[in-house]
Simulated assay, not measured.
Amino acid sequence: MSALVGADVKLPSPHRALKGVVDAPWQQVLADTAAQGLDGVLLRTVYELSPTLDAGLLRDVADTAAGLGLYLELGVGKVNPYMTAELPEVRRLGDGSYVAGMERMIEAAAAIGCHELWTATGNFQSGLPGLHKNDRYRRDAPWSDQLAATERLLARLAPVLRACGSRLNLETHEEITTPDVVRLVEAVGPDVVGVTFDSANVYVHGETAEAAARRVAPYTRMCHLRDVVIVHGPEAPDRYLVPCGEGVVDWAEVLGSLLGANPDLHLTIEPAGPHQPAMQIWYDDPRWRVAHPDLDPLELDAVLDCVGAYEHHVRSFDRPDAARLRAGGLFTREEFLRRSAGHLRGVTAAGAHTHPTKEYIP
Protein backbone atom coordinates (compact mmCIF):
# COMPACT_ATOMS: atom_id res chain seq x y z
CA MET A 1 0.00 0.00 0.00
CA SER A 2 1.32 3.45 -0.95
CA ALA A 3 1.89 6.14 1.66
CA LEU A 4 0.13 9.49 1.39
CA VAL A 5 2.00 11.90 -0.90
CA GLY A 6 1.49 15.66 -0.91
CA ALA A 7 3.01 19.02 -1.81
CA ASP A 8 4.78 21.75 0.11
CA VAL A 9 3.39 25.20 -0.80
CA LYS A 10 4.59 28.71 0.04
CA LEU A 11 1.86 31.33 -0.24
CA PRO A 12 2.56 35.05 -0.77
CA SER A 13 3.59 36.88 2.38
CA PRO A 14 1.87 40.18 3.12
CA HIS A 15 5.16 41.80 4.14
CA ARG A 16 7.98 40.32 2.05
CA ALA A 17 8.89 38.40 -1.09
CA LEU A 18 9.63 34.69 -0.84
CA LYS A 19 11.36 32.32 -3.22
CA GLY A 20 9.21 29.59 -4.74
CA VAL A 21 5.91 31.28 -3.92
CA VAL A 22 2.69 29.97 -5.45
CA ASP A 23 0.83 33.18 -6.25
CA ALA A 24 -2.71 31.88 -5.85
CA PRO A 25 -5.39 32.03 -3.16
CA TRP A 26 -5.47 29.12 -0.75
CA GLN A 27 -8.77 27.85 -2.19
CA GLN A 28 -7.14 27.43 -5.60
CA VAL A 29 -4.03 25.86 -4.08
CA LEU A 30 -6.11 23.19 -2.36
CA ALA A 31 -8.27 22.57 -5.45
CA ASP A 32 -5.19 22.31 -7.67
CA THR A 33 -3.51 19.93 -5.22
CA ALA A 34 -6.52 17.61 -5.31
CA ALA A 35 -6.79 17.91 -9.11
CA GLN A 36 -3.14 16.81 -9.40
CA GLY A 37 -4.06 13.58 -7.63
CA LEU A 38 -2.03 14.39 -4.52
CA ASP A 39 -3.11 13.42 -1.02
CA GLY A 40 -2.32 16.53 0.97
CA VAL A 41 -0.53 19.82 1.41
CA LEU A 42 1.92 21.52 3.75
CA LEU A 43 1.22 25.26 3.81
CA ARG A 44 4.05 27.51 5.00
CA THR A 45 3.30 29.36 7.13
CA VAL A 46 0.19 30.12 9.18
CA TYR A 47 0.61 33.89 8.81
CA GLU A 48 0.65 33.53 5.01
CA LEU A 49 -2.90 32.17 5.29
CA SER A 50 -4.02 34.90 7.67
CA PRO A 51 -1.78 37.71 8.94
CA THR A 52 -4.21 38.09 11.86
CA LEU A 53 -4.71 34.35 12.47
CA ASP A 54 -8.42 34.71 11.81
CA ALA A 55 -9.98 31.64 13.44
CA GLY A 56 -12.88 31.48 11.00
CA LEU A 57 -10.61 31.61 7.96
CA LEU A 58 -8.28 28.96 9.33
CA ARG A 59 -11.27 26.70 10.08
CA ASP A 60 -12.44 27.21 6.47
CA VAL A 61 -9.01 26.10 5.25
CA ALA A 62 -9.11 22.95 7.37
CA ASP A 63 -12.70 22.13 6.37
CA THR A 64 -11.98 22.70 2.67
CA ALA A 65 -8.93 20.43 2.80
CA ALA A 66 -10.94 17.73 4.56
CA GLY A 67 -13.74 18.06 2.02
CA LEU A 68 -11.25 17.48 -0.78
CA GLY A 69 -9.80 14.46 1.01
CA LEU A 70 -6.46 16.18 1.63
CA TYR A 71 -4.27 16.03 4.69
CA LEU A 72 -3.33 19.50 5.94
CA GLU A 73 0.00 20.37 7.52
CA LEU A 74 1.12 23.84 8.58
CA GLY A 75 4.32 25.65 9.41
CA VAL A 76 5.21 28.46 11.78
CA GLY A 77 8.09 30.92 12.04
CA LYS A 78 11.73 29.96 12.36
CA VAL A 79 13.41 29.42 15.70
CA ASN A 80 16.94 30.81 15.45
CA PRO A 81 16.94 34.11 17.40
CA TYR A 82 19.88 35.38 15.34
CA MET A 83 17.67 35.59 12.23
CA THR A 84 14.20 36.29 13.64
CA ALA A 85 14.54 39.96 12.65
CA GLU A 86 14.08 38.65 9.09
CA LEU A 87 10.53 37.61 10.04
CA PRO A 88 8.83 40.83 11.24
CA GLU A 89 5.37 39.33 10.67
CA VAL A 90 5.86 36.94 13.60
CA ARG A 91 6.77 39.78 15.93
CA ARG A 92 3.69 41.69 14.74
CA LEU A 93 1.51 38.72 15.66
CA GLY A 94 2.91 38.90 19.18
CA ASP A 95 2.43 42.66 19.54
CA GLY A 96 6.17 43.15 19.74
CA SER A 97 7.16 39.70 21.06
CA TYR A 98 8.49 37.07 18.67
CA VAL A 99 7.87 34.35 21.27
CA ALA A 100 4.26 35.47 21.74
CA GLY A 101 3.79 35.47 17.97
CA MET A 102 5.04 31.88 17.77
CA GLU A 103 2.77 30.88 20.65
CA ARG A 104 -0.25 32.40 18.90
CA MET A 105 0.52 30.47 15.70
CA ILE A 106 0.97 27.19 17.58
CA GLU A 107 -2.37 27.70 19.32
CA ALA A 108 -4.14 28.72 16.10
CA ALA A 109 -2.86 25.64 14.29
CA ALA A 110 -3.84 23.35 17.16
CA ALA A 111 -7.36 24.80 17.12
CA ILE A 112 -7.88 23.37 13.61
CA GLY A 113 -6.24 20.04 14.38
CA CYS A 114 -2.71 20.73 13.06
CA HIS A 115 -0.23 19.60 15.70
CA GLU A 116 2.85 18.63 13.68
CA LEU A 117 4.35 21.97 12.64
CA TRP A 118 7.20 22.79 10.28
CA THR A 119 9.98 25.12 11.38
CA ALA A 120 13.63 25.77 10.51
CA THR A 121 16.77 27.39 11.89
CA GLY A 122 17.99 29.74 9.16
CA ASN A 123 17.81 31.26 5.72
CA PHE A 124 19.84 31.06 2.52
CA GLN A 125 21.09 34.46 1.31
CA SER A 126 21.86 33.94 -2.36
CA GLY A 127 23.41 37.41 -2.78
CA LEU A 128 26.23 36.83 -0.30
CA PRO A 129 29.69 35.49 -1.25
CA GLY A 130 30.72 31.85 -1.02
CA LEU A 131 29.74 29.87 2.03
CA HIS A 132 28.45 33.04 3.74
CA LYS A 133 25.21 32.52 1.83
CA ASN A 134 24.48 29.98 4.54
CA ASP A 135 23.53 31.08 8.08
CA ARG A 136 25.86 28.46 9.55
CA TYR A 137 28.75 30.71 8.49
CA ARG A 138 27.31 34.16 9.24
CA ARG A 139 30.03 36.53 10.37
CA ASP A 140 28.24 37.99 13.39
CA ALA A 141 27.63 34.80 15.37
CA PRO A 142 29.40 31.43 15.62
CA TRP A 143 27.13 28.51 14.83
CA SER A 144 27.55 27.20 18.38
CA ASP A 145 26.04 30.46 19.68
CA GLN A 146 23.16 30.16 17.22
CA LEU A 147 22.44 26.59 18.33
CA ALA A 148 22.50 27.55 22.01
CA ALA A 149 20.10 30.43 21.39
CA THR A 150 17.83 28.17 19.33
CA GLU A 151 17.71 25.62 22.13
CA ARG A 152 16.72 28.35 24.59
CA LEU A 153 13.93 29.59 22.32
CA LEU A 154 12.61 26.06 21.81
CA ALA A 155 12.63 25.55 25.58
CA ARG A 156 10.58 28.76 26.01
CA LEU A 157 8.03 27.41 23.52
CA ALA A 158 7.86 23.96 25.14
CA PRO A 159 5.06 24.83 27.62
CA VAL A 160 2.63 26.00 24.92
CA LEU A 161 3.55 23.03 22.75
CA ARG A 162 2.81 20.62 25.59
CA ALA A 163 -0.44 22.41 26.42
CA CYS A 164 -1.54 22.13 22.77
CA GLY A 165 -0.25 18.59 22.23
CA SER A 166 1.86 19.95 19.38
CA ARG A 167 5.42 19.61 18.10
CA LEU A 168 7.82 21.87 16.21
CA ASN A 169 9.62 19.85 13.55
CA LEU A 170 13.04 21.25 12.70
CA GLU A 171 13.89 20.96 9.03
CA THR A 172 17.22 19.43 8.09
CA HIS A 173 17.89 22.77 6.45
CA GLU A 174 21.01 23.89 4.58
CA GLU A 175 22.54 25.49 7.69
CA ILE A 176 22.06 22.61 10.16
CA THR A 177 23.42 19.07 10.18
CA THR A 178 21.45 16.02 11.24
CA PRO A 179 23.61 15.55 14.39
CA ASP A 180 22.80 19.17 15.30
CA VAL A 181 19.07 18.52 14.80
CA VAL A 182 19.09 15.32 16.83
CA ARG A 183 20.88 17.03 19.72
CA LEU A 184 18.28 19.82 19.77
CA VAL A 185 15.42 17.32 19.74
CA GLU A 186 16.90 15.33 22.60
CA ALA A 187 17.84 18.42 24.63
CA VAL A 188 14.38 20.01 24.53
CA GLY A 189 12.33 16.80 24.36
CA PRO A 190 10.97 14.71 21.47
CA ASP A 191 7.43 15.25 22.75
CA VAL A 192 7.65 18.90 21.66
CA VAL A 193 10.45 18.94 19.05
CA GLY A 194 10.82 16.62 16.08
CA VAL A 195 12.29 16.61 12.58
CA THR A 196 11.17 17.64 9.12
CA PHE A 197 13.43 15.50 6.94
CA ASP A 198 14.65 17.31 3.83
CA SER A 199 16.35 14.77 1.61
CA ALA A 200 18.28 17.32 -0.46
CA ASN A 201 19.76 19.76 2.05
CA VAL A 202 21.81 17.15 3.86
CA TYR A 203 24.25 16.82 0.95
CA VAL A 204 25.69 20.30 1.49
CA HIS A 205 26.98 19.03 4.87
CA GLY A 206 28.68 15.95 3.42
CA GLU A 207 25.75 13.72 4.39
CA THR A 208 23.92 11.28 2.14
CA ALA A 209 20.13 11.11 2.20
CA GLU A 210 20.27 7.43 3.10
CA ALA A 211 22.55 7.83 6.15
CA ALA A 212 20.83 11.06 7.23
CA ALA A 213 17.42 9.37 7.13
CA ARG A 214 18.66 6.62 9.42
CA ARG A 215 19.93 9.19 11.93
CA VAL A 216 16.73 11.21 12.14
CA ALA A 217 14.07 8.56 11.43
CA PRO A 218 13.08 8.02 15.09
CA TYR A 219 12.19 11.71 15.39
CA THR A 220 10.87 12.47 11.89
CA ARG A 221 7.26 13.65 11.77
CA MET A 222 7.25 15.64 8.50
CA CYS A 223 9.09 15.59 5.16
CA HIS A 224 10.45 17.76 2.38
CA LEU A 225 11.31 15.23 -0.32
CA ARG A 226 13.20 15.89 -3.56
CA ASP A 227 16.07 14.23 -5.37
CA VAL A 228 19.49 15.68 -6.03
CA VAL A 229 22.24 15.61 -8.60
CA ILE A 230 25.79 16.73 -7.86
CA VAL A 231 28.01 17.98 -10.65
CA HIS A 232 31.40 19.65 -10.95
CA GLY A 233 31.05 23.40 -10.40
CA PRO A 234 33.35 26.37 -10.94
CA GLU A 235 34.04 26.80 -7.20
CA ALA A 236 32.91 23.55 -5.55
CA PRO A 237 30.60 20.64 -6.35
CA ASP A 238 27.17 22.00 -7.25
CA ARG A 239 23.96 20.46 -5.93
CA TYR A 240 20.81 20.75 -8.03
CA LEU A 241 17.27 19.57 -7.33
CA VAL A 242 15.45 17.12 -9.59
CA PRO A 243 12.24 15.07 -9.26
CA CYS A 244 12.36 12.05 -6.98
CA GLY A 245 13.75 9.05 -8.88
CA GLU A 246 15.79 11.14 -11.31
CA GLY A 247 18.86 11.78 -9.18
CA VAL A 248 21.20 9.83 -6.93
CA VAL A 249 18.97 9.15 -3.89
CA ASP A 250 18.10 5.52 -3.12
CA TRP A 251 14.43 6.05 -2.32
CA ALA A 252 13.73 2.49 -1.27
CA GLU A 253 16.38 2.84 1.40
CA VAL A 254 15.36 6.32 2.53
CA LEU A 255 11.65 5.51 2.71
CA GLY A 256 12.41 2.21 4.37
CA SER A 257 14.10 4.07 7.22
CA LEU A 258 11.47 6.78 7.53
CA LEU A 259 8.37 4.63 7.19
CA GLY A 260 9.90 1.87 9.27
CA ALA A 261 10.07 4.33 12.17
CA ASN A 262 6.76 6.09 11.42
CA PRO A 263 4.42 4.18 9.07
CA ASP A 264 1.90 7.05 9.08
CA LEU A 265 4.41 9.65 7.89
CA HIS A 266 3.13 11.89 5.08
CA LEU A 267 5.55 12.04 2.16
CA THR A 268 5.42 15.73 1.31
CA ILE A 269 7.34 16.84 -1.78
CA GLU A 270 9.04 20.25 -1.87
CA PRO A 271 9.07 21.00 -5.61
CA ALA A 272 11.65 23.05 -7.44
CA GLY A 273 10.60 25.41 -10.20
CA PRO A 274 12.06 25.79 -13.69
CA HIS A 275 15.02 27.85 -12.47
CA GLN A 276 17.07 27.27 -9.34
CA PRO A 277 20.48 28.38 -8.11
CA ALA A 278 23.08 25.74 -7.42
CA MET A 279 23.98 25.08 -3.80
CA GLN A 280 27.64 24.32 -3.20
CA ILE A 281 29.35 21.65 -1.11
CA TRP A 282 32.37 23.58 0.20
CA TYR A 283 34.21 20.48 1.42
CA ASP A 284 37.64 21.78 0.36
CA ASP A 285 37.33 25.01 2.36
CA PRO A 286 39.06 24.83 5.79
CA ARG A 287 36.26 26.93 7.29
CA TRP A 288 33.71 24.34 6.14
CA ARG A 289 35.76 21.55 7.72
CA VAL A 290 36.04 23.35 11.05
CA ALA A 291 32.29 23.99 10.99
CA HIS A 292 31.54 20.25 10.68
CA PRO A 293 32.96 18.54 13.77
CA ASP A 294 30.61 15.56 13.30
CA LEU A 295 31.72 14.93 9.71
CA ASP A 296 32.22 11.28 8.79
CA PRO A 297 34.97 11.10 6.11
CA LEU A 298 33.48 7.94 4.64
CA GLU A 299 30.10 9.58 4.26
CA LEU A 300 31.65 12.64 2.65
CA ASP A 301 33.40 10.30 0.20
CA ALA A 302 30.01 8.77 -0.60
CA VAL A 303 28.62 12.25 -1.30
CA LEU A 304 31.52 13.12 -3.60
CA ASP A 305 31.09 9.78 -5.37
CA CYS A 306 27.64 11.05 -6.39
CA VAL A 307 29.34 13.24 -9.00
CA GLY A 308 30.56 10.17 -10.86
CA ALA A 309 27.32 8.33 -10.25
CA TYR A 310 25.34 11.11 -11.86
CA GLU A 311 27.71 11.31 -14.81
CA HIS A 312 26.82 7.65 -15.41
CA HIS A 313 23.13 8.65 -15.34
CA VAL A 314 23.85 11.34 -17.95
CA ARG A 315 25.52 8.84 -20.27
CA SER A 316 23.20 5.89 -19.70
CA PHE A 317 19.79 7.43 -19.13
CA ASP A 318 19.97 10.71 -21.05
CA ARG A 319 19.72 12.80 -17.90
CA PRO A 320 20.55 16.54 -18.15
CA ASP A 321 24.23 17.38 -17.87
CA ALA A 322 25.74 20.24 -15.87
CA ALA A 323 25.22 22.81 -18.62
CA ARG A 324 21.53 21.95 -18.97
CA LEU A 325 21.07 22.02 -15.20
CA ARG A 326 22.60 25.50 -15.01
CA ALA A 327 20.43 26.73 -17.87
CA GLY A 328 17.27 25.61 -16.04
CA GLY A 329 13.84 25.21 -17.54
CA LEU A 330 13.91 21.41 -17.32
CA PHE A 331 10.56 21.08 -15.56
CA THR A 332 7.74 23.14 -14.15
CA ARG A 333 6.67 22.97 -10.52
CA GLU A 334 3.70 20.82 -11.55
CA GLU A 335 5.90 18.42 -13.51
CA PHE A 336 8.27 18.13 -10.56
CA LEU A 337 5.37 17.18 -8.29
CA ARG A 338 3.85 14.71 -10.76
CA ARG A 339 7.07 12.90 -11.52
CA SER A 340 8.13 12.80 -7.86
CA ALA A 341 4.75 11.55 -6.65
CA GLY A 342 4.70 8.80 -9.24
CA HIS A 343 8.11 7.56 -8.17
CA LEU A 344 7.46 7.71 -4.43
CA ARG A 345 4.15 5.87 -4.81
CA GLY A 346 5.83 3.22 -6.90
CA VAL A 347 8.52 2.67 -4.28
CA THR A 348 6.09 2.45 -1.37
CA ALA A 349 3.66 0.24 -3.29
CA ALA A 350 6.50 -2.15 -4.04
CA GLY A 351 7.50 -2.15 -0.37
CA ALA A 352 10.42 0.04 0.69
CA HIS A 353 13.41 -1.82 2.09
CA THR A 354 13.59 -1.84 5.85
CA HIS A 355 17.31 -2.50 6.00
CA PRO A 356 20.18 -0.52 4.41
CA THR A 357 21.58 -2.06 1.26
CA LYS A 358 24.58 0.11 0.43
CA GLU A 359 28.15 -0.68 1.30
CA TYR A 360 28.58 2.49 3.39
CA ILE A 361 26.44 2.27 6.56
CA PRO A 362 27.40 4.81 9.25
Rank of each mutant, 00 (worst) to 15 (best):
L68D: 01
D135C: 14
K133V: 11
A66S: 13
L49S: 08
Y71I: 12
R139N: 02
L131D: 04
F124Y: 14
R156T: 08
A109W: 07
C114T: 09
G113D: 05
R91K: 15
A158C: 05
I112H: 04
A110G: 03
G56V: 13
A158Y: 03
A120L: 07
K133Y: 10
A155S: 14
L147E: 09
A149M: 05
N80A: 05
A108S: 13
A148D: 15
Y47E: 15
E89S: 10
E48L: 08
R59L: 12
L74D: 03
A62W: 07
L93M: 12
H115M: 07
F124W: 13
Y82G: 00
P51S: 05
A55T: 12
V99D: 15
P81Y: 06
L154P: 02
A100R: 14
E107Q: 10
A66D: 09
R136Y: 04
V76H: 10
R92C: 14
R139I: 01
L128N: 09
R152E: 03
L154M: 12
M102V: 02
D95V: 01
P129Y: 13
M105T: 06
D54Y: 03
T52C: 07
M105D: 05
L68M: 03
A62I: 09
D135Y: 14
R138G: 03
L87F: 14
R138F: 10
R104N: 10
T52W: 14
F124I: 08
W118R: 00
M83Y: 10
S97I: 03
A108V: 10
S144N: 09
E151V: 12
H132Q: 14
V99G: 11
L117A: 03
D63F: 02
K78I: 14
A148F: 05
V61L: 06
V90T: 05
P142I: 04
R91I: 06
A62Q: 08
G113P: 00
T119Q: 08
A155Y: 12
Y71A: 00
P88T: 01
A141Y: 08
A149I: 11
T119G: 07
G127V: 09
G127H: 15
S144R: 13
A55N: 06
W118D: 03
R92E: 15
S144V: 08
R136D: 07
I112G: 06
A109T: 09
A111Q: 04
A65K: 02
P129N: 03
L49G: 01
L53D: 05
S50T: 10
W118T: 01
L153Y: 08
T64P: 00
N123E: 11
A155F: 13
L58S: 04
G130I: 12
